[in-house]
Every structure is written in C-alpha cells, then in structure tokens.
C-alpha cells in the first residue's frame, strides 16, 4: 500500500490516510460486534463477521490502531442487528468512495473487496436470517 518512507509524496500520504481510516473503521466495527455479543449472546453466531473486521484491521493498519469506539447496544436483538447493519452500511459507503479515490491500485482493490465483504454482511444481518 502507501509507502510510509516518502511522507513528502502527497499522493502517497493520501493513500495512507485512506488506509488508516479503513483500519480505524474496521476496529470500530469489531468493537460494535463484540459489545453486541456480550449483550445478546444469542447473536454470537455472527462471530465470523466480526472476524472479518479483525482481518480488515490487520490488512489496512500501517501502525497500531487504537481500540475501536463502542456504541450503545440496543436492548432488543432485532434492534441490535439493525444497529450493526446501519454501522456496516455507513462504513461500506465510505470504503466505496475511498476505493474510487485511492491512487494505488492495490489499495483500491483491498478497499473495494472489504466493501464487498460488508455487502455480504448486510445480507446476513437482514432480519429473519437464521
């Protein structure tokens, strides 16, 4: 991805900003899933989705990433699923925009692929999915 040894290269530093934002948002989503599982153990079957976000943190982080920021988990499991879907959807939109904007083709591909993973998550988070 972006070359951290060339901070004077404006284009490279833009890619670094995009990658860092993707790492941070993945960390936020990871924390949101973990908090959801603590409050609603019945939703723990969604663990593989949280694991994807851990992989996204690893892929996009250029340096240690601060722990994600948690949000309040709604009282009902159905609302908790909706909250996760809303968080996924907003971050997915930003990743799509970042994939279009990235200078590096490799970073664009990684961002677009992470967004595709989130598109799958949005299907799996629909109410009524087992």
């Amino acid at each position: 991805m972006a070359d951290a040894t060339e901070p004077t290269d404006v284009r490279a530093s833009t890619d670094e900003v995009l990658a860092a934002a993707a790492a941070r948002s993945a960390a936020d989503l990871l924390v949101a899933y973990e908090a959801t599982f603590r409050r609603h153990p019945g939703l723990s079957h969604l663990g593989p989705l949280a694991a994807h976000h851990a992989q996204h943190v690893e892929a996009f982080a250029q340096q240690p990433v601060a722990n994600g920021r948690g949000a309040r988990v709604p009282r009902s499991p159905r609302d908790a699923l909706s909250a996760l879907a809303a968080a996924e959807s907003g971050i997915r939109e930003r990743r799509v925009a970042a994939a279009r904007a990235a200078t590096s083709g490799a970073l664009a591909r990684a961002l677009a692929s992470a967004a595709a993973c989130q598109s799958q998550h949005l299907v799996l988070l629909r109410p009524g999915r087992p």
Partner: peptide, 28 residues
C-alpha cells in the same frame, strides 16, 4: 473503476445467495 467496485460487491453477494460462505476479502 467505480463500476468495477460495484461489480465486485455484486459478485460477492450473488455467490453468497448461491451458498458460498462470506469472506473477508472477496475476489482478493
């Protein structure tokens, strides 16, 4: 590129609908 970004999500969700497991990095 913008279109290809959308197509990648489309392929990932169609595969899922036909029984593929979700992946952290579809197509990559």
């Amino acid at each position: 590129r913008g279109e290809a970004v959308g197509w990648l999500s489309d392929a990932a969700t169609r595969g899922l609908a036909w029984g593929a497991p979700p992946a952290a990095f579809p197509g990559v």
